[in-house]
C-alpha cells in the first residue's frame, strides 16, 4: 500500500488553546487519566499537547498556544537509535511504534527534539467506571514501553478497509471524517488538517503549496535539525505585532 504520505497542517493562528484535541486523543487512544500528580511528576502522557507561552510584559500580556504532536519526521532522529527496531518509518509516511518490540531504553525519547515520546512509568489504570470506554481498536500499553501519537492509525486502517469494500479510495471526500484523527475531528476552530501530501488533489497538499510560497505562513518545527517533519505549521498572523512594526 505504498504511496501515501500522511501529514498534518496546524494553523497556529486558529488555535484557541481549548484542549479539546487533547481530550479527544486521550479517549480515542486509551491513554490513562492524567491526574495532577502525574503533571507534577512530569510523567503525564499527552500524545498531543497544547503548549502555552506567555508573551510580552504586563499589562500587555498575550497567551500563545501551539499544539504539538508527533511530527512523523521523514528523517526521524528517534528511529535509528532504537536497538530493537521498535520504531521505524513505514511506507505510508508514518513513524510507527511497535509496542511488542519495545524494551524501554528511552533512547528515542532523548533523541526526540519535540518531546513527543512518552514512557509508561506505571501499569496504566482506569477508574472502575471507565473500564468499558476503552477503544477496542487500540492496544492498552503495558508499563515499561514507549508510546506516541500514531495519527490514529486505527482510523486510517478502518477507513481503508471500508473504502476498499465500497470500491472507493480512502482519501475521497466522503471518508474525510472517519479518516481524520480524533484530534482533528474534535477541533472546534479547524486548526488541524489531516491528509495525504502525496496526493496532489488533497486539501493539505493544496494548503502546503499555497503557504509554502514566498509570503506563505508555512514552517516546520526546529527546521535547523533537518528532521523533515510531516507536520506543517502555519504562522500566527500577529496583527498587534504588525501594527507595532508599522508604527
Amino acid at each position: 500500500m505504498a504511496g501515501e504520505n500522511w501529514g498534518m497542517i496546524v494553523d497556529v493562528d486558529k488555535c484557541i488553546g481549548c484542549q479539546a484535541c487533547v481530550v479527544a486523543c486521550q479517549s480515542e487512544n486509551n491513554i490513562p487519566i492524567n491526574e495532577e500528580k502525574h503533571f507534577n511528576e512530569r510523567r503525564a502522557i499527552e500524545w498531543i499537547r497544547v503548549e502555552r507561552y506567555w508573551e510580552g510584559e504586563f499589562p500587555d500580556v498575550k497567551a500563545r498556544f501551539i499544539p504539538i504532536m508527533c511530527q512523523h519526521c521523514g528523517d526521524a532522529p528517534c528511529e535509528p537509535v532504537c536497538p530493537v527496531f521498535a520504531t521505524y518509518r513505514n511506507d505510508e509516511g508514518l513513524n510507527v511504534q511497535i509496542y511488542n518490540r519495545c524494551i524501554g531504553t528511552r533512547f528515542c525519547s532523548n533523541n526526540c527534539p519535540y518531546h513527543v515520546r512518552f514512557f509508561n512509568f506505571w501499569e496504566p489504570e482506569w477508574p472502575e467506571s471507565l473500564h468499558n470506554q476503552l477503544n477496542p481498536d487500540v492496544t492498552v500499553r503495558s508499563r515499561g514501553i514507549m508510546e506516541k501519537c500514531t495519527f490514529c492509525i486505527q482510523r486510517i486502517r478502518r477507513t481503508k478497509r471500508t473504502a476498499s469494500r465500497a470500491g472507493a479510495d480512502a482519501t475521497d471526500e466522503e471518508f474525510e471524517r472517519s479518516l481524520d484523527p480524533a484530534c482533528v475531528n474534535a477541533c472546534p476552530t479547524e486548526t488541524l488538517y489531516f491528509g495525504d501530501f502525496n496526493d496532489p488533489e488533497s486539501k493539505v497538499s493544496a494548503m502546503k503549496e499555497k503557504e509554502s510560497k514566498r509570503d506563505g505562513r508555512a514552517y516546520t518545527m526546529l527546521e535547523n535539525l533537518g528532521t523533515n517533519p510531516g507536520v506543517i505549521y502555519l504562522k500566527k498572523i500577529d496583527k498587534h505585532a504588525e501594527d507595532v512594526a508599522h508604527g
Binding site: 510523567r43 525519547s109 509508561n120 506505571w122 508499563r143
Partner: peptide, 15 residues
C-alpha cells in the same frame, strides 16, 4: 515488580 516509576525519572529526563 512495580515499574520504572519508582525512580525519579520523568520526561524529559529519561536517563
Amino acid at each position: 515488580n512495580k515499574g520504572v516509576g519508582v525512580t525519579g525519572l520523568n520526561r524529559p529526563i529519561m536517563w
